[in-house]
Design a protein around this nucleic acid. Structure first.
Length: 556
RNA sequence: GCGCCUUUAGCUCAGCAGGAUAGAGCAACGGCCUUCUAAGCCGUCGGUCAGAGGUUCGAAUCCUCUAAGGCGCGCCA
């Protein structure tokens, strides 16, 4: 707990104590003390609505209750300068903010770790995200999912959860057969043969590339190969190629997974049979029309679901269900799936499956990422899987820049439908909010560099009492908010809370920068105190940007 | 028809475990560079929080209904 948090806790405790001393309510009746930072500076540094909350219990007017609370309040317990009653019964606290400077040595000492808390109690959490089929390039929607998923993981980790990042590879089933056939067709085409693409083939440019590569490397070696053998060769080659490309693209996007979980492995090590047996044993399975069904309606689903089709093969649900069983068997307390909105209809059946297997369905959380539409020249771009005409994640990064893309996706709440105007993102890239934050960081670095030339450097022992300007306290308060902002983003699973924080901290810095000068050879004590302050800002800002996968440049 | 998401300033969006006069960026307008990076700062303009009911001392926020838009309702993945 940092100084700011300690003071808030002390304040809360004293408010509660005052309520009890005033005899306004019994211990058990006192609502949790809500402390908030008023939007208006004129309303103090902190305020509480306690008097209003007690109105019914104490059967008195809120303002009268507020008077009672203040009468029994011991200001010496928390750095209070002044207390006022305002509006319908708010109690506003004006703090003696000098205690805030104690934050600085803490931030400087903790460095990269500043912001870390144990809010998550080391809970074992698994986050599955992206999990795109290895049958084509990652597109816009995957980019959003990657950005949100990775940021969420970073945040959970910093907030004290034990996080595992996982990618589920759909390397079994029909789509991979289609991949093999698509590769085959492109290979023949590359050799000049007249070969049609399979009906559900993948038309992406990447597959054309694979065909060309095979033709270049191996010539007509495969043309006369036995069909089955050729199919298997292309299947394997295509899969390997696609997976390598996928990993590379994600790494370039600053996303790394702890586990790449293969669907095929579920077949090989009997996990699917195991899951089916478990369901059968519990009586959640029946046969009809030559197929095997899961009675998911018993767990709130709209209709029962087929697990084994009448041709003997599995539906998509079956291995996925086994995969989720395995997640819980591996000891994860919370399993979070980041899915595109086009899969939201899939949630009830997966929840049903989890429950039918004997787990608490609340342990499975699904974060739905709404769809992204790309606009160019004011027109919505058509994305067609069939023709392979889609803007890839790689294209987007090349055109807009990685930091901007990461920030842009992390900035918005996951459940807003998003229109990505490419022209705007490119042409006005300088006005993208990401530069606002990065610029603040670069400015700080610049001051630190110039300070060194003037023999003014950050001294951890520096006397911080010269810091007493309002802008300085505001900046310090923002720095102090960081751990709580992370905890909130983690608990509510809202990475975009972090970009809000980044904006607020950057704004507080820019405002300070324009109001006060850091380097002043004539006033070394003040310069040293301010250098320590801005270094604390630098550390905090860098850590915050790191959480959302955005770099903190030293120069711009 | 059913389910999920969205509707807040001209535009893009925050705010939604109820709190004071609803915020930010862009756009528009007016100021600030002989002083640490003007990719910045300060100010002005701009709102029936889609609409109607309800709960509450208090609703953008919670509940119900309506409207508009998006997505989904396969023995596809």
């Amino acid at each position: 707990m940092n100084v700011a948090e300690k003071v808030q806790e002390a304040l809360k405790a004293e408010i509660k104590a005052a309520v009890l001393k005033a005899g306004l309510a019994e211990e058990a009746e006192v609502p949790a003390v809500v402390l908030e930072v008023p939007k208006e500076k004129a309303h103090g540094d902190y305020s509480t609505n306690m008097a209003m909350q007690l109105a019914r219990i104490a059967k008195k007017a809120p303002r009268a209750i507020a008077d009672d609370i203040i009468a029994h309040f011991d200001s010496s317990k928390a750095s209070i300068e002044k207390i006022e009653i305002a509006g319908p019964g708010f109690i506003n606290f004006y703090m003696d903010n000098s205690y805030l400077t104690d934050l600085i040595p803490v931030v400087l000492r903790e460095g990269d770790d500043y912001g870390r808390t144990n809010a998550g109690n080391n809970e074992k959490v698994q986050v599955e995200f992206v999990s795109a089929n290895p049958t084509g390039d990652l597109h816009l929607g995957h980019a959003r999912g990657a950005s949100v998923g990775d940021s969420l993981c970073n945040i959970l980790d910093k907030a004290g959860y034990d996080v595992t990042r996982e990618y589920y590879i759909n390397d079994a089933g029909n789509q991979i057969n289609n991949l093999a056939l698509s590769v085959e067709a492109r290979y023949f085409q590359a050799l000049g043969h007249d070969k049609e693409m399979p009906e559900d083939g993948y038309h992406g440019q990447d597959i054309v590339g694979i065909g060309q590569k095979l033709a270049d490397e191996f010539g007509d070696k495969f043309v006369n190969m036995e069909e089955k053998e050729r199919f298997n060769t292309f299947r394997e080659y295509g899969l390997k190629y696609e997976m390598e490309k996928l990993k590379k693209d994600l790494e370039d996007f600053r996303v790394k997974f702890d586990v790449w979980y293969s669907e095929t492995s579920l077949y090989q090590n009997g996990k699917i049979d195991e899951a089916l047996a478990a369901l059968r044993e519990k009586g959640h399975i029946y046969e009809e029309d030559g197929a095997v069904w899961f009675r998911s309606t018993a767990f709130g689903d709209d209709k029962d679901r087929v697990l084994i089709k009448n041709d003997g093969s599995y539906t998509y649900l079956t291995p996925d269900l086994a995969y989720h069983k395995d997640k819980f068997d591996r000891g994860f307390e919370k399993v979070i799936n980041v899915w595109g909105a086009d899969h939201h209809g899939y949630i009830p059946r997966m929840k049903a499956a989890v429950e039918a297997l004997g787990y608490n369905p609340d342990q499975l959380e699904v974060e739905i990422i709404q769809l992204v539409h790309l606009y160019k020249n004011g027109e919505k771009m058509k994305m067609s899987k069939r023709t392979g005409k889609a803007v890839t994640m790689r294209d987007l990064v090349e055109e807009v820049g990685l930091d901007a893309v990461r920030y842009f996706f992390a900035m918005r709440s996951s459940d807003t439908h998003m229109d990505f105007d490419l022209d705007l993102a490119v042409s006005e890239s300088n006005e993208n909010p990401v530069y606002y934050a990065q610029y603040a960081h670069a400015r700080i670095c610049s001051i630190l560099r110039q300070g060194e030339e003037q023999d003014l450097t950050v001294n951890e022992q520096a006397d911080l009492s010269p810091l007493k300007a309002e802008k300085e306290f505001e900046l310090l308060k923002k720095i102090g908010d960081f751990p709580q902002a992370i905890a909130e983003a983690a608990e509510k699973r809202i990475p975009h809370r972090m970009t809000n924080y980044v904006q607020e901290l950057s704004a507080a810095f820019h405002s300070f920068y324009n109001a006060e000068k850091v380097l002043d050879a004539e006033n070394k004590p003040l310069s040293e105190a301010r250098l320590a302050l801005i270094q604390a800002v630098q550390v905090t800002l860098k850590n915050a940007l790191q959480l959302i996968g955005v770099s903190a440049p030293e120069k711009m």
